[in-house]
Write a protein that binds this DNA or RNA. Structure first.
Lengths: 253, 253
DNA sequence: CATATTCGTGCAAATTCCTGCATGATGCAG
DNA sequence: CTGCATCATGCAGGAATTTGCACGAATATG
C-alpha cells in the first residue's frame, strides 16, 4: 500500500469515526504500530489532525462532536466487531447480517487484502462505501425497515446464489432454553437460509440481547459454528451451546 | 508500445484504481521500473497526477468521487428534489437512481400516503429508513462503489421484475450535442434498462453537470419523458430536448 | 504507587529513487 | 548509403525513504 493512500484512508476513518486508534489501524492495514504512529506524527505536523495518546482526533473544532458520539456507541460492540473482523481471511467471502453489532464488524474489516462482503442490509453496504479493498455484493428484496434488511422471495433467491465462507449472524435474543431467536418470522427465515448457504455461521451477541423479553422465531443450534459474546455474558444463556460444543469466544475486559 | 499510449493507460489505471504502483505497472507493461518512474515523474510535472513513494496517486482533490460531490450545490438540489417528490402520487411505484440529487428526492417524498420506492442504491435505501409510509424495494447486485449503486447481471434481472411508474434518473453530464451521458459503461447500461422498464423517466440535472468535461456513455433521448433542471441552466445544453418536445421543468429562485 | 500501554529514538534491512551512462532505434541531412 | 543527432530504454551504483524491531522514557489507569 502506498503511503499517501494510507494517510488519505486514515483521514477518511477519522472523519467517519471521529477518532483514530493507532493499534486498530495498524491491524486493519496489516502494518506495525510504529508506521502508523509515524504517519500520525507527520500528519499532525501538517495540521491534518491532533495527536493524542493512543491515536488521533480531528482538529479542535470537531472535538465536542466526538465526545458526544463517544457515549452513544458502546465499547463492547466495538470489541466484538474488531474480534470478528480478524476472522476474515484474504479472498474469502463473508456475509454480514444487518444490525449495529455487524456494522461494527464492517468498520473493522481489514484493509490490507482483498475479500468479498455480501449483505442484505443497505446500512452495512453504505458503511463499506470507502473500504479500499472489499468487493460488496448487495442482496436485494423488499426492505424490512425495522431492522433495515432485504427480505422476501427475491432476497431468498439472491442468497441462494452465493456461498459465503463465514456468516456473521446477529440475533435479537438468546433464551436459556429456546436458544437463538429473532422477532420477525420473515427475518428468521432469511437468517436460516443464509446460514444454510454459508460454510460457517458465527453468532454475534451482546448482553442486552439476553434480557429481551420473549423469544419468538427460533434459529436452530445446528446452524451455529461459533459464538462471539462479551466476556461478561451470563452463563445460563449459553448453556445450550456449551452442551452442543459450540466454540464460544468471550471478548472484552 | 508508444510512450504516449503507455501514459494514457497509466492515467486509466489511476482513474480506475485510485492509485498506481510503479513496480506492478512495470511488470504489466514488461518494462523496467525506471521507465515507469520517468513517466510518473514527467506526468507529475504536467500536473496529471501526484507522485508518491512507490507510485502515484490522483491529484489532491480526487476525481469526482461520490463523497466529494456531496454538497456541491445543496440548495438547488434540495429545490429540485422537493419539486420531483411532488410528482409522486398515492399507490404509485417510483424508481430512484443513485446520487445526491435523487437523495434529495428521497428526503422530500410525501409522508401522507403510501407508495413504493425501488432503488439500486443502498445510500438511498438508508435515507428511507425512517419514512413512515414508503415501501422500499432494494435492487441487489455487485456494488459499484464509485457511485454506490448495484450493477451487473443480478441487478439487471431484478430490475426486469419491476414496472415503476416514474424513474428519476441522475446523469453525470449533459452535452449540447451528445445529450445525457454517464461516466461508466456498466452504469449507463443499468440506467437504460431502468428507463426501459419504467413508464416514465424524468432526468434530474444540476448546472455543474453541464460543465463536466467529456460525455462518455450516452443515454438515448427517447427514454426521457421530462427533465427537472435548475432555472438558471444554460439554454444550449437543453436544445436537443426542446426540439424533441420534452417537457422541461425549470425549478429555483 | 504499580502496572500496563503507548511513545520516541536509534538502528538495520529492504525497497524505492535518482543520476549518469551505454545501447539501440529512428529520423534527417549530406 | 553514411554520419550525426535525438530519443526511449535499461542498467549500475549510490542516495533517500520506508518499515519493523528493540529498548528506555513517558503516560494512562486503577
Amino acid at each position: 500500500m502506498l503511503t499517501g493512500q494510507r494517510r488519505t484512508l486514515i483521514l477518511d476513518i477519522l472523519r467517519r469515526d471521529g477518532q483514530v486508534i493507532a493499534k486498530r489501524i495498524a491491524d486493519d492495514f496489516g502494518l506495525s504500530e510504529d508506521t502508523i504512529r509515524r504517519d500520525l506524527r507527520e500528519m499532525a505536523a501538517e495540521r491534518l489532525l491532533t495527536r493524542v495518546h493512543g491515536g488521533a482526533l480531528p482538529l479542535a473544532p470537531e472535538l465536542p462532536d466526538f465526545s458526544a458520539r463517544r457515549g452513544v456507541s458502546p465499547d463492547v460492540k466495538r470489541q466484538l466487531g474488531a474480534f470478528a473482523a480478524k476472522m476474515v481471511q484474504p479472498r474469502r467471502t463473508v456475509f454480514l447480517d444487518g444490525g449495529t453489532t455487524t456494522a461494527e464488524i464492517a468498520r473493522h474489516l481489514p484493509r490490507s487484502f482483498a475479500f468479498t462482503v455480501v449483505t442484505h442490509s443497505p446500512t452495512i453496504a453504505a458503511e463499506l462505501e470507502h473500504h479500499p479493498t472489499a468487493e460488496v455484493i448487495l442482496i436485494g428484496g423488499k426492505l424490512y425497515k425495522h431492522s433495515m434488511v432485504a427480505t422476501g422471495a427475491a432476497a431468498m433467491a439472491a442468497i441462494s446464489l452465493v456461498r459465503p465462507d463465514i456468516f456473521f449472524l446477529g440475533v435479537t435474543a438468546i433464551h436459556p432454553v429456546h436458544g437463538l431467536s429473532t422477532g420477525d418470522f420473515e427475518e428468521a427465515a432469511i437468517k436460516r437460509h443464509i446460514a444454510q448457504c454459508s460454510a460457517e455461521t458465527y453468532v454475534m451477541a451482546t448482553q442486552e440481547k439476553l434480557d429481551a423479553a420473549s423469544p419468538c422465531h427460533i434459529l436452530p443450534i445446528r446452524a451455529v459454528s461459533g459464538m462471539v459474546v462479551p466476556s461478561d455474558i451470563t452463563e445460563a444463556s449459553l448453556a445450550p451451546y456449551r452442551s452442543a460444543e459450540v466454540p464460544i469466544f468471550a471478548v472484552g475486559d
